[in-house]
Design a protein around this nucleic acid. Sequence first.
DNA 1: ATGCCTTCTAGCAGAAGA
Length: 260
Amino acid sequence: MRVATWNVNSIRQRMEHLARYAEAARPDVICLQETKCADEAFPALEARALGYESAFHGQAAYNGVAILSRRRPKVVARGLPGAPADAQARYLEALVAGERGPVRVASLYLPNGNPPDTDKYAYKMAWMDRLSAHAAELLRAPEPVVLAGDFNVIPSPGDVYDPEAWASDALFLPETRARFQRLLALGLIDAIRALDERPGQYTFFDYQAGAWRRNKGLRIDHVLLSAAARAGLRSAAIDREVRGWERPSDHVPVRVDLDL
DNA sequence: ATGCCTTCTAGCAGAAGA
């Protein structure tokens, strides 16, 4: 099964890009972030025309996540467990049909957290703690687990064009990176890094200052795999050419092929 | 040192993103 994750920065602005990407990459499952779209406005019929059934958890203007699947996804969590009052639409988890049984797939949009001296960073830290607690639960389940999305975490200096310039940013602070490492320590594997250790493989290029043209990027979109999912990992790639399309998202898709 | 650009909503300016 081929799974892609993509922060589209508004699904309604990016339907043509989604159609073009679906045609070119032919993923079986697409995790979307920053749909910026209330549930009643989600373009489910357009997605169906592309060959996908949709599950979505959105809100007006901000955030919003979705899972598109060739076969109807069965939603098992809408919102990240552990804070029922949290109204930000950042987490959706579903069971999707693999060739040998169900696969548990989450589409997540982890908080940015900037500026770091505000409650936004505290929210990010708390969200990451909740994600770790929930991931520990998931890893006890029988199905392979795929956590895919915009983590807003630069894991290592090789994942940013200028580590020193980003040293005090919420995406790269030691506390942020330590919490990401804590996720990996639970037994989750970074799919890109499992197959390719080269630095400079970016998934985000800012709209400003010619970041794309100058290859000034960040690797902040990730696919994390449980051991069972890792055992099926055949390839992982970043579809960076999408950033060169007309009126693109500032993020590009990350794609994995899983023999599951 | 700061803004650069793009999105949203509301209503043509401000917030958020990373």
